[in-house]
Design a protein around this nucleic acid. Sequence first.
RNA 1: GGUUCCGUGGCCGAGCGGCUAGGCAGAGCUCUGCAAAAGCUUCUACAGCAGUUCGAAUCUGCUCGGAACCUCCA
Length: 496
Amino acid sequence: MSNLKVYNSYSRQKEEFFPLTPQHVGMYVCGPTVSGESHLGHARGFITFDVIYRYLLYLGYKVRYVRNITDAGHFEEEGRAAEDKISKKAVIEKMEPMELVQKYTNLFHWAMHQFNNLDPSIEPTATGHIVEQIEMIKQIIAAEYAYVVNGSVYFDVKKYAAKYPYGKLSGRKLDELLETTRDLESQEEKRNRQDFALWKVAPPGHIMRWTSPWGEGFPGWHIECSAMSTKYLGTEFDIHGGGMDLMFPHHESEIAQSTICNHHVPARYWLHNNMITINGKKMGKSYNNVIRLTDMFTGNSPLLTQAYHPMTIRFFILQTHYRSTLDFGNEALQAAEKGLKRLWDAYLELGKMTSDPLKEINPQLETQFNSLCLEFDDFMNDDFNTARVLANMFNLVNHINSFRSGDLEKTTLSPETLSYVKKQFKNYLEDVMGLKDENGQDSGRLQGIMDLLIDIRKEARSKKDYLTSDLIRNQLLEIGILLKDEKDGRVSFTLE
RNA sequence: GGUUCCGUGGCCGAGCGGCUAGGCAGAGCUCUGCAAAAGCUUCUACAGCAGUUCGAAUCUGCUCGGAACCUCCA
């Protein structure tokens, strides 16, 4: 079996993955800002890193997965109407800031569970780590890479860049930044326009504020992630994840802060997921094209022609490589919905398959099943290529169905192959990709009722009383239960 | 303007030097009381131009088109 290779944004190439401590992985992923509802784009990142987390677990690593909650409110940095996003909205909604934060945190957790994302090992909040952030800022000041102006603290990027490779992650050069950084308000406080805030003085009336050595204020945009990742994963850890749009300036700044405090680039592997686009444009507030997760699940959006199940969305996302953009469209989502259903039905069928000693084993199929399933490992090891794993699974769907009612009826798989295939499907479909039955577990009661109805209908059919049999089937369809007369005489049903 | 990336069949997307990707949709057939499901067969591709190569969707150059970042952003 091949070894895991990941694309490292920092080196811009695929690298073999070696954790700092054998058998252990430390992973930090930038979490949500809980000043509003998450949208489809956010979901992609969290699902991506959930699969990465799951795969690392599958490989046998003990993983500490840290994903923060940004509840302190980032500020329209660089002086742009210096208002705290969270406290501003709190006034509008007439809520306490922490009440608002709680509401959206709960909603976020709910959505993550809908997607079957595993909970991170630690989910630290920014407000809970003000002390650590202040400590870190002190260190940076002591090292003389930050300066205090009127109660605010700024990181001296120019000085940093003279000694360290600032811009390496995002592929930027300081000179270019100097020329292209926009002219924004209250630049005059800073020595150089590309300096970023570590601490901002709180204007009067600003609700979220904390005392600090520099006066009352609030932390800057990037320091929370540096402080919390250091606290829970150490000065150097394995994986840092987030969306590509966070590379600059967020991750670049994290690197600068940690380099000064801890003398390391904080993470060895930087992984970035690409964006979800809609009509080719990134989904985001500024484009006014977001589809909130709650809307996805209910279909309540002019951009949606129907509601989509969380598993459909998850599957839709996993059909693409995480570093490619994914274009949203109803047609594409509907395709995912149908595809997943077919895949899942075949998976259930696979679970029922047994190796029949009376039937002939087809050596060609044996090879095919084995090699296609073996490739799951290689594909995932190749920078988490879930799209190819799914493609291989679909290649087997036809065969699995053929064993039931097609021209493979008279053949069988060897017990070894069958159990291997079942194991691989279970491992990858459920454990690694985190897909689960949309319908949940059918209750025994439903099964009982269905058995009864199916029996009545069978009786009617045997008497050629198609009026009754069709009535049952049609009425069931009305309430979303689809009956299927299988070739072998069985009758199965699926919930729409 | 700077930096980076992308352009694959009706739609979404893998692939990144030689091999059918895959899903959905379309067409035909099989099965079936009729459906549905399923199976089989089948139709549409690699933006354009020029080069490198025995061989290119995959490498190089140019042209056209699109995007991301440089502002808060998954």
